[in-house]
Design a binder for these strands. Structure first.
Lengths: 154, 154
DNA sequence: TGTGAAAGAGTGACTTG
DNA sequence: CAAGTCACTCTTTCACA
């Protein structure tokens, strides 16, 4: 699907504030509100915009402990398998297959160290996991939602 | 600040759909629309809800290459220093100080390998960086926005 | 917190370049 | 075909009980 410069700007504005009105966006991109709505509808329908979400301070909700866990998997493990398995754990906020020694990298978020340990144990219980290597997050310095500065086109 | 069970449910609903109407949320939590608005306003004012954003398919915007980079830093480098420095790079979508060998873990997103390489070079140019170790993301399996399933309280 | 009223936003049908 | 206009409905958001 083709997205033009106006779409880009609309996306950037929605990433900055998902509750902005179509009229507001319209004035910023020189379009009428219905025109903006049609574009947003199209972007949602084609999957460019996956949805709208609230950005919550994890500490405020009590999920304050984070870790990155490298997963070493059994010989014939597919990415899809890892995806399905990791998605089952609510503590998993990110999972990626990666190059290098490990097969996958899993981003965990939990209430505290005890909760994190429990989640890790559960993860290690997955049949295809042969071993893990954890890295505890000491502090979160940057965490952009969305796709980063989507106003830029590289 | 104190957030009760109703706040939790409102947060969960907004994470699921940031554009839900107050009336809609209200029926789900048995409150009137203005009551919901007042709670959301309070949650925003106190920083529990940091904002509302659109979740964009990175591939659709052309940022399709990702990496995790471990940063090894000079002796007296503060987390704040790393935070300020990494925030300068638009490719950085996440940065954390971590336990283990490395001092920090940086999550990069770029258009392609060339762009990623350029970003990495720029990052390595930061005065306090002594060395880096990169892990390329092969596929994204899970990536939850917000705070994960915030309907759960651990 | 709920109610009700005024202002504003979302959305469909229709028209125009 | 995509944008603009208009009309109608639903939301937001205020004051007050």
């Amino acid at each position: 699907m083709q997205i033009d410069a106006v779409d880009q700007r609309i996306i950037a504005l929605l990433v900055a504030d998902a509750r902005a009105s179509y009229a507001d966006i319209g004035t910023r991109v020189s379009l009428s509100a219905p025109a903006v709505k049609r574009r947003v509808d199209r972007l949602r329908a084609t999957g460019v915009i996956r949805g709208f979400t609230a950005v919550v301070d994890p500490a405020a909700v009590g999920w304050t402990t984070e870790a990155f866990v490298e997963l070493f998997c059994a010989g014939r493990t597919t990415p899809a398998q890892i995806g399905v398995a990791t998605r089952r754990h609510p503590e998993v906020v990110g999972a990626y297959t990666v190059s290098g020694e490990a097969d996958a990298l899993v981003h965990l978020r939990a209430a505290d160290i005890a909760h994190l340990e429990a989640a890790l144990e559960r993860l290690r219980g997955e049949s295809f996991v042969t071993s893990t290597r954890s890295t505890i997050v000491l502090s979160r310095l940057v965490e952009s939602p969305g796709v980063g500065p989507s106003s830029r086109t590289p």
